[in-house]
Design a protein around this nucleic acid. Structure first.
Length: 140
DNA sequence: GCCAACGTTGGC
DNA sequence: GCCAACGTTGGC
């Protein structure tokens, strides 16, 4: 099966794309929401992840990949919560704003639009390709 | 900075 | 098991 595609949100002043590039890899911790957690658990090594800056920017800025599938969140003893490891693949040549996503009929159904508080969500492959197209970026 | 949406918690 | 209170997220 082809790798699945996802989108994760991060507030850039907490942990930005540049921080991820600097670190090379990071542990995607802090998810405390069951739906987001379930999505994390469904991620497989090699899956592609769109990196979205929430609050400031409100745009998709890069492509990352899952380098380690879900394991116990090391920042808590509560075994309900998991993390994955992600690494940057490449930045988008052109950022894709939330406004552009909302304006695109093919992307209007994305949970990013319909379910704005969810921080980790699946992205249908067609929508993923469309976002890369808008970002003038070839698949990584 | 405000506020709506909504998930979670805890008392009953 | 219900539901009110509370906290958080994130767009505007």
């Amino acid at each position: 099966m082809a790798p699945a595609t996802w989108l994760v949100k991060s507030e850039p002043f907490k942990y930005s794309w540049d921080d991820l590039v600097r670190d090379g890899t990071t542990c995607w911790d802090g998810v405390r929401n069951y739906e987001a957690r379930n999505n994390l658990q469904a991620m497989k090594r090699g899956d592609r992840v769109l990196y979205y800056h929430s609050n400031e920017g409100k745009q998709v800025v890069g492509i990352a990949r899952v380098t380690k599938s879900a394991y116990q969140d090391p920042t808590t003893d509560d075994e309900r919560w998991v993390v994955v490891d992600v690494s940057p693949v490449k930045p988008l040549k052109q950022n894709v704003s939330l406004a552009a996503i909302k304006a695109d009929p093919a992307l209007r159904e994305l949970q990013l639009v319909t379910h704005s508080r969810l921080s980790v969500m699946p992205v249908p492959v067609a929508a993923y390709k469309r976002i890369l197209q808008l970002g003038k970026t070839s698949p990584g």
